[in-house]
Design a protein around this nucleic acid. Structure first.
Lengths: 211, 211
DNA sequence: CTGCAAAGTTGCAGTTTATGCATAAAAATC
DNA sequence: GATTTTTATGCATAAACTGCAACTTTGCAG
């Protein structure tokens, strides 16, 4: 049995090499978002981004498959972490509650350091609908993992309707919450928005607005 | 007051010009999907697609913003139709029922002629996840309209949580239904799958699998 | 701490995607 | 049937992306 030469996606880095990789990826992502926020999407080239991050343009493509990816692609390990969180919740919790808790934890931690950057990212993404699509696509990968986690938890196969649907619905709820969060005149914190959306979902969407 | 020179997005074409445009768009879309299904995504260039559809490559880009768009972009009028359907449902229906009926009608009509092509498209998209982004982009546009229709129907603003969330959740349910539909070993017709998913949603996702 | 293997970076050449602009063809309008 | 708007196309050009072959850095074992 060999030692695993890769970083553990759940517990974080594992040596200088991995740390540098994360730094480079983060630097590229940050440069991409801030530059586009400043100048606009098509006034920023991959070369610009690479320069700002102090790497060659060729290296950019070692990290991101496209310019859009750099702007919108989420942490590639997020899905795996999310899945682990779901299966790790106490056994007595129902699936909806477990997923709720897991998602909240993951998002809170993900945003921990970089709330500012995330807000900026959301604003940029909303300004360019092509990017919104990329975000969804990224979310889709996480959604798959989430569905797998749910399936594992309740003893279903990953192609059953229930896990797929619950994962998709939660993903949709998060999307809506993010959109409202990025709305400049909505002061509610993201965690509350997510909670509100998930509660509405769990209530079956039967209740129109009220209030 | 001028006459509207454009085709009515809800009721269909309005003269030779519009018919030709639809034909060209359809031909390009069909060529793109079938070629990629045959040869694989990167063995097909925009030039190939254009040749197959008998137009110049430059014309291709008058219809689609990108190669991906030709593979994954839905009918650009679908969102408007969907919205009209939602507001047109009988007033006594609740929002969930109205949306359910509207979505079912739209999808049924959309697939009417081209069930085969749609299935092929789904398979292609599943094979190349990059395309998922474009699919979501299209879905997102429709989702906006759907949310607007719901808001109009229940007298809410389009930035309220309920319309956004209902639209997003329904969109998610449809996505899941499509995925299962494209599964080669699932013989259930699309309409049933959508109904099943929406019922689960309306039940609040509280019920794990059963069965 | 030295040397070897694995992984990461970079430059370069070449293809494909995508857009602006000018012109010709087609169709709607009167 | 003349005009006026829309659409199609060719050309030029920029930017996005990929494969390949050096070269550098890091990990690791002796």
């Amino acid at each position: 049995m060999h030692k695993n030469p890769y970083a553990d996606p759940v517990n974080g880095e594992r040596g200088l090499r991995d740390r540098k990789k994360r730094q480079t990826r983060a630097a590229l992502g940050r440069a991409a978002v801030t530059l586009v926020a400043e100048r606009g999407y098509d006034q920023v080239t991959v070369e610009d981004i690479s320069n700002a991050a102090d790497v060659s343009p060729r290296t950019f493509f070692n990290y991101f498959a496209s310019k859009d990816d750099a702007l919108a692609a989420p942490d590639p390990d997020g899905g795996a972490r999310l899945r682990a969180r779901v299966v790790g919740r106490p056994a007595e919790e129902g699936p909806v509650a477990a997923v709720h808790a897991a998602v909240l934890a993951e998002i809170t931690e993900e945003l921990a350091g970089d709330r500012e950057l995330w807000l900026l990212r959301m604003r940029v993404v909303q300004q360019y609908p092509e990017l919104l699509a990329r975000v969804f696509a990224g979310g889709e990968a996480a959604e798959r993992q989430l569905a797998a986690g749910i399936a594992e938890r309740i003893g279903a196969t990953p192609t059953d309707v229930y896990p797929l649907l619950l994962a998709a619905a939660v993903s949709a709820a998060c999307r809506v919450a993010f959109i409202l969060w990025a709305e400049p005149d909505d002061p509610r914190p993201l965690e509350n928005l997510i909670g509100e959306a998930l509660d509405l979902l769990a209530a079956g969407l039967g209740a129109p607005p009220e209030s």
